[in-house]
């Protein structure tokens, strides 16, 4: 037991109960279906813009060459162009590798003292693999959901659905039926990956030690979103046309509450709304932050180009030339060497 993850888990359970009883018992469909989602979208967009704008007020005058390869130096020393770029083109490639493929995470290694003496570097790519799976699956899930927010459904959403549902798994048992409608891989990958990311924080003691409630909360919340979504799609079926009517109402600013859509939908909706509201205030802002990583998005050209700190205090400097001009005669008198014999 750990108070950090228990706290987060309880928070998510409370959210579930709020949505469940708020809709099922209190009948607050308008609050949970219309007011909260609109507020959440507003807070998400405004908050996101505000945070990024706020970051832009921090100057980064110098290059921070925390790099992973040979920097540009002499022509006969080969430069690591993408790991230590000295040009904008190289920086763009490094940023693409970072944003799309998590190159920094790929460098992750585990260090161990073998037998208390020998330091070994151990191949450790699991975090990279599951982080990549998690983020890509999440992106696919988000794009897939555009089928509820666009009419007609754009061809690229349909194409993605086709790819996502490529593996056709269907099996039937007496208790539950899996595979109908067609299985989308992304939802399941998302759930598995988020569970891995959670277990990693529980079982690796060093990671556990530095994990806070704010690390567990988004994981539980995303777990809740994935589970409620999967339940809705495969197990507790909801009237999907009713759902789309509702989401289209939100998108066209003429919201109405659908009839006969189960409470599980409102639970899903509240989880997503809370995620959106939580987003700008939390570590989830790395969505915007990754583009502003100073160690990744600046070319390492400190040797080639002078970068000046914009908030340098204007210091009055008394140069040697000025000093000599001032004291030249006295220096010559005293027999001290001077650079120029006269003014």
């Amino acid at each position: 037991m750990n108070k950090n993850y228990m706290f987060s888990l309880i928070a998510v359970i409370v959210l579930f109960l709020i949505a469940y009883f708020g809709v099922e018992t209190a009948g607050l469909h308008v609050l949970f279906g219309i007011v909260i989602p609109y507020l959440a979208a507003l807070i998400f967009i405004v908050g996101f813009v505000y945070r990024v704008r706020d970051w832009a007020y921090s100057p980064v005058p110098f290059r921070i060459p925390s790099t992973c390869g040979q920097q540009a130096s002499l022509p006969w020393i080969r430069q690591a162009t993408y790991d230590n770029p000295s040009s904008n083109g190289g920086v763009i490639v490094r940023m693409i590798l970072e944003v799309l493929f998590f190159r920094s995470l790929f460098r992750n290694m585990r260090f161990e003292l073998k037998g208390g003496k020998k330091l070994s570097y151990i191949w450790e790519k699991w975090l990279w693999l599951f982080a990549l799976a998690f983020h890509w699956a999440f992106l696919v899930v988000v794009i897939r959901h555009l089928r509820f927010f666009a009419e007609p459904v754009p061809f690229w959403v349909q194409f993605l659905e086709y790819l996502d549902g490529f593996v056709r798994v269907e099996f039937l048992s007496d208790v539950l039926q899996v595979g109908l409608p067609g299985v989308f891989m992304s939802g399941l990958v998302l759930l598995v990956a988020v569970i891995f990311l959670f277990l990693r924080r529980v079982f690796i003691s060093q990671v556990n030690y530095i994990s806070l409630a704010s690390d567990y909360f988004p994981l539980f919340l995303i777990m809740g979103i994935a589970i409620s979504g999967i339940l809705m799609r495969y197990f507790i079926k909801v009237d999907i046309v009713g759902v789309k009517e509702f989401t289209m109402g939100l998108a066209t600013f003429s919201p109405s509450i659908p009839e006969g859509v189960g409470v599980i939908f409102y639970v899903h909706l509240l989880f997503v709304s809370v995620l959106l509201v939580y987003f700008p205030f939390s570590k989830l802002m790395h969505l915007g932050g990754v583009f502003l990583s100073p160690t990744r998005n600046l070319a390492n050209n400190s040797r080639a180009k002078r970068h000046i700190n914009p908030w340098n205090y204007p210091v009055h400097v008394h140069t040697y030339e000025e000093y000599e001009d001032e004291f030249r005669e006295k220096m010559i008198e005293a027999g001290l060497p001077v650079e120029k014999e006269s003014n």
């Binding site: 996101f48 832009a56 583009f291």
Partner: peptide
Amino acid sequence: MPRQMYDKGKIVAGLVIFVIIATFPFWYN
């Protein structure tokens, strides 16, 4: 020293792209 935005052009461009993507359901329909 007055607070000042750095790399304003890039930041604003990025935020405009973000807002366009985030509001897709609203303008698409």
